[in-house]
Nucleic acid binder design. Structure first.
Lengths: 352, 352
DNA sequence: TTGAAAGCGCTAACAG
DNA sequence: CTGTTAGCGCTTTCAA
């Protein structure tokens, strides 16, 4: 099925690299060089470059000319050390495989960029011990703030965070106590709303297909909320299938297949997220199961792909990009500790 | 169709934040504090902490005890300034919307982490002027290296890069001269291989559905390669549709619809990537067009979603994660300028 | 409006 | 094996 193409090869660049690796590494241009070139003091250059304090227009011109002539690039490492805080914001996310987290990053980086901050990212693979490690590592850069995902952390992580004194924003969950800034939505409420919706549409034999809930705490909260929602209607799950792996289209597809093999009379399937649900949808298409006639499908996240399926996916849309942006804005500010619940939106779609 | 839920609300955290914003900001613990506490010199502490140079086991124990007692976190800003280079690697990508770039990041961050480096990311939105700006900004952190996407840059960007003397890796393209390290695959060859494959399967009325080629230079190279491939077989495109926007499932769906409305007798559609092709597939499903009987589909990237569709998508699989990892490894090293062509793989799938 | 000088917290010689 | 002493490049008083 696969055909090797575009053969692998390693070779030296034919042309001389534009970045000569010259042995005689020339000393980088410093602010002192600029001062000398512009015939002014170092502090004057510093003021001009940061448009801070006062200086004459003539001086400004001289400095700018010198900067251009020398190709000076300020050294923010030195600047940060000399001044109080850095313009770095650490961002800790569990994964880059699920588009949800790039979406967060997208919102955060756009806002940070606008405010003159630089994001430094770290990935935990849904592992709280790794989170502790990367938080430590990020903290050593003395960031102005840290954005982390979720409300559950190791005690050690919390201790370090508290001791560091930096602002912390926790993202994507509001179901529990936060450390400082909390931006997200209630996963529990989302799960419950999903259950109410399915029940309201008349489904009674509802199954759950999910991924590794031990690691993904927010998915676990949705699951709990969903069961509560069913319970409130006097129902219970007709069956469930959990994949001991991160969520994926594949896990959704094989998960639904496995569940249907065991519980044949399901009339609806609730998935831990849209990726999983898409996998389920593909299974239905492949097997010719009518959706929602034979089986209704419900997801979580409101991804583009769900909106564009031949039948739009029933799901819960979450404002992820906005959450990232909001967290970035607040973490750079100096407001009080806050919880911002951005809410969510139930998308009826056509699969349920 | 939409139902508002999980109402938005802003409120103060009920519990006292674990990170007290105490007005009397306590002075952070420094290496000097540790030295005093451990009753040794500062340089001794430094040596122990970096396991560099020599010291007695007894000293090591004292230092470690002091570090633990004081909760000391090293300040890498200061460390970097005092030593030669930083352990920061800048990564510049055009977008976070297409999963391809998070994939790159995934490969790169994993490798960087293992080598003790920290990634700092910036997003250009496929804008070369913005690339110049963010490269400048990244350079001011004096990174050990920079990973950028593609081979096309503003002259100003190239100048700054060259002047900085940092290692630079260019990713995802090998069709053209590079600055230093180049890691990727030939987009042109991929386009040509796609054309040969479709022609080989007997398709003759082939259309192209693409996105903004002015900004996405690699997609433009695939397009050029594809046309060359057709030309070599004595064929030409039977029609094409270009969306003046970034690639998306939606653009693929509407693009194919528009093209079929104009050119009714197409027998195959070549898409600028898998997202676009997925949109096309959804269009076919929605309209009941048999794939590949009525219309064959071909994409680019080899995303999971294509593999898991009821009919696996015909596409070209690219080693993106590996490319990110390779670039990270090389950019942290001190080897010669290199081009690494990782090649690609044609996936026959079932849609062509 | 400007410059001199004193650090920021750490690393890297260099003595001892 | 360990401490002392210079800086790294910049910002920030504080005088001038």
């Amino acid at each position: 099925m696969d055909e090797a193409e575009g053969g692998r090869r390693d070779y030296r660049a034919e042309a001389e690299p534009l970045t000569p690796r010259d042995g005689a590494a020339r000393r980088p241009v410093t602010l002192a060089d600029v001062a000398r070139e512009a015939r002014v003091g170092e502090s004057t250059v510093s003021r001009v470059l940061r448009s801070h304090g006062s200086y004459s227009q003539k001086t400004r011109a001289q400095v700018e000319a010198a900067v251009a002539r020398l190709g000076y690039v300020p050294n923010r490492i030195a600047g940060t050390l000399a001044s109080t805080g850095s313009r770095l914001i650490g961002i800790v996310i569990p994964s880059l495989t699920n588009i949800v987290f790039p979406d967060l990053l997208r919102g955060a980086t756009a806002t940070l960029e606008a405010e003159g901050f630089q994001p430094v990212i770290a990935v935990t693979d849904y592992d709280q011990d790794r989170e502790e490690t990367v938080v430590d590592s990020l903290l050593s850069w003395r960031p102005a703030g840290l954005i982390v995902t979720g409300l559950e952390h190791n005690p050690g992580t919390v201790r370090r965070l508290a001791a560091s004194g930096v602002r912390v924003a926790e993202l994507l969950d509001v179901d529990g106590p936060g450390l400082d800034i909390v931006v997200g939505y209630s996963n529990r409420a989302a799960g419950a709303a999903s259950a109410r919706h399915l029940v309201g549409r008349g489904y009674r034999r509802i199954g759950y297909i999910g991924h590794d809930l031990g690691r993904d705490r927010r998915a676990a909260k949705r699951y709990a909320g969903f069961r509560e929602g069913l319970g409130a209607a006097g129902l219970a799950l007709a069956g469930e299938e959990r994949i001991a792996a991160p969520s994926s289209i594949e896990a959704g597809r094989t998960g639904l297949a496995a569940l249907l093999a065991r519980v044949r009379d399901l009339d609806a399937a609730y998935f831990s997220n849209d990726d999983m649900a898409l996998g389920g949808y593909f299974h239905c298409l492949a097997r010719g199961l009518a959706v929602p006639g034979r089986l209704a499908l419900f997801g979580y996240n409101g991804l583009d792909v769900g909106r564009l399926m031949p039948q739009p996916l029933a799901t819960i849309r979450t404002p992820r990009v906005e959450a990232g942006a909001t967290a970035a804005r607040l973490v750079c500010g100096s407001g009080p500790a806050t919880v911002v619940d951005l809410g969510f939106e139930l998308v009826e779609g056509a699969t349920a």
